[in-house]
Design a protein around this nucleic acid. Structure first.
Lengths: 199, 199
DNA sequence: CTTATCTTGGAATAATCGTTCCAAGATAAG
DNA sequence: CTTATCTTGGAACGATTATTCCAAGATAAG
């Protein structure tokens, strides 16, 4: 008997992700969301509950739609170091050019926001970090079996180092860093993990 | 003949730095500044001009008082790789424990804020980046003369990589990352730059 | 002590914040 | 087509935003 929603919450959430990603969630008001999505305040609150929950939902969706596929591709790529290099080349390209140029990464950006301390947000941040580090580690293990890694390298520490590099790329790209500079930095780290023959 | 200020602008600016650094400038209102400093709105506006300029002034002061001394110490330290290691050990300690634990770095945090695009802010961000990278490069050159670096290492790219690592340490520490994990990541990068005898 | 000049406290501004509320509209089952 | 139930548009809410304004207070020179 009841009425049904006049909009698609999935589509709306995608629009909210874009909004929070580009402008920043803290400086984006509900009025902005209403204008960008065409959905009224009432429907927004009835569907998502409030800004904090909308923010958490958008962050979770970003992780699933933007980050996770790339992480899984990296973890499944068996090439070793070339897979990691390709990951960073795609990352830098996505951060510095194209539709999302200079937007940074929503997860990285969220690290610095005021509500980063909330348990619900912190959990997603940690999930993102663990997923990326695990993917990096898988790629490093593949590199190891192919004899691409120098002796004595700790894969866990190396995976953490590469994950940190990715965060920094996201951060600096939003502030206008040049793609070439970022890639050179990444390449230096990667070369340090390789055998002298591989680099 | 005129009246003189009833407060010390230098002291006030230091208090503002602490406020913006810990809480974030975007979510800190002028009312918060008034309460924390004890200086009235009128005096604040008469002295600093407005929030945007207050923010730029605080950022500039952070760079001079917090960052610059450490950068200069790094650049002047002639030990080479141990100097860089010491820099990161102090950094991680300052970010994860003590008075400023989990505050991150004001400059790093500002990369993600909405007004990071303003020319006045962007300039300070770039100044900070150049200063840190130059200090890293100086330390790497010292390492080179001491024969600590592996053959074929590009000092510029390596300096950029280490600078990026520092940003990531700042970012992740604010979100609660463990000191040991951060140090392990840094160590992995540093080891990759060293000769097999040095690491 | 008068006076010129700056500073200060606090009220007031208009705009925006997230959120709530309710009447009007839309839906689909009976 | 009636009716029960949800959705929707939009007004309204109190709180907070950055900023402005002005009278009252404080200072130091003459």
């Amino acid at each position: 008997m009841p009425d049904v929603k006049h909009f698609d919450p999935e589509v709306t959430l995608d629009q909210v992700v874009a909004l929070f990603w580009q402008r920043g969630a803290e400086v984006t008001g509900i009025a902005d969301v209403v204008q960008a999505t065409g959905v009224s305040r009432s429907s927004l609150y009835a569907t998502f509950g409030g800004k904090a929950q909308l923010q958490a939902a958008a962050l979770g969706r970003y992780l699933e739609r933007q980050s996770r596929p790339v992480f899984e591709a990296l973890a499944a790529d068996g090439r070793g170091l070339p897979a990691i290099a390709a990951f960073f080349e795609r990352l830098v390209a996505a951060r510095c050019s194209g539709v999302h140029a200079r937007w940074g990464c929503l997860v990285t950006n969220t690290h610095v926001t005021a509500n980063a301390g909330l348990p619900e947000i912190r959990e997603i941040l940690e999930r993102h970090h663990d997923a990326l580090r695990a993917a990096m580690r898988a790629a490093l293990e593949a590199a190891r079996t192919k004899g691409q890694l120098r002796a004595g390298l700790d894969p866990g520490a190396a995976a953490e180092a590469l994950t940190l590099q990715a965060y920094a790329v996201n951060l600096r790209s939003r502030a206008g860093a040049e793609a070439g500079v970022l890639l050179a930095g990444v390449r230096a780290v990667l070369d340090g993990f390789a055998t002298s023959e591989e680099r």
